[in-house]
Amino acid sequence: MREVVHARGHENVSAEHGSTFEITTDDWLTPAGDCILAVEADRAPTAFADAFVDACRNRDATIRATLTATTDEGDTHTATIVGRGHPELSFENERSHVGRTSDYVDDRTVLVDADAAAADLDRDLVDALAAGADLRVELAVEPADGGMA
């Protein structure tokens, strides 16, 4: 099962945070937001299907975030971050999607134990986002039994 979010980069994207990455529905970004990869997301976690949310609430579920940045020139840069689910994931936030390398959960968290954070992303992808590239975020959950939900 998959959920897709579209957003866009911003001139203040630095992707320097070592333990999280974030996509926000906000239309602005200050330099202090060093985990934020994109703004103006067209969906918030509250918009995700109940079946997707339920599948993510299993510690043994694998959640993949595939990030694809597309520049105005048509160049694409892709990264995949793999994490897992957690029983306390609520998907109740109306603004932000946050992936975490830790197992901390709040209403913004969409995956935990991620194998990468903002600082780990390829700098070409980050540069494209800082130049305002469009970002497609595909979240895919694989249930504990190994089949795609």
Rank of each mutant, 00 (worst) to 15 (best):
A116R: 15
G18I: 02
I23V: 15
V110H: 13
A69G: 03
L125M: 11
E40H: 04
G85V: 08
A32S: 15
L89T: 05
S19F: 10
D106M: 05
D27Y: 12
A130E: 15
N58V: 09
L129Y: 13
H86K: 10
R123Y: 04
A61S: 15
A65S: 07
N58G: 06
G99H: 13
V82M: 06
H86C: 04
R57G: 11
L29Y: 03
A51N: 11
D75W: 02
W28L: 01
A118R: 12
P87I: 10
D103I: 04
D54A: 14
G83F: 08
I81K: 09
L121G: 06
F48S: 06
R100W: 11
S19N: 10
S90C: 10
D124A: 15
A61R: 01
E73H: 00
T46K: 10
F48R: 05
L89M: 09
H86S: 10
A131E: 14
I23S: 01
A114D: 15
F91W: 07
Y104A: 07
E92W: 11
A38M: 00
G18H: 07
D115H: 04
R100D: 06
F52Q: 03
T68S: 02
S102I: 07
L111S: 06
V126G: 14
H86Q: 07
A130D: 07
L89D: 11
R64W: 11
T101E: 14
V105M: 13
V110A: 14
A41G: 00
D72Q: 03
V110Y: 14
E22G: 06
C56F: 10
A51L: 11
N93T: 08
T80E: 09
D60I: 02
T66Q: 08
E40L: 03
R59N: 13
T24G: 08
A47V: 03
S19E: 05
D34G: 01
D54M: 05
D120A: 05
D106T: 07
R108D: 07
V82F: 01
A55F: 07
A65F: 02
A61F: 09
D115T: 02
L89F: 08
A55E: 04
A114S: 12
F21A: 09
T80V: 07
I36N: 00
D72L: 04
T30L: 01
E22C: 08
A116P: 12
D26I: 00
R100N: 04
H17A: 02
E73G: 00
T78W: 03
D60C: 11
D127A: 15
D127Y: 08
A128S: 06
T70G: 00
L121A: 05
T62K: 10
A65I: 06
T109E: 13
P87G: 11
Y104T: 07
A117G: 11
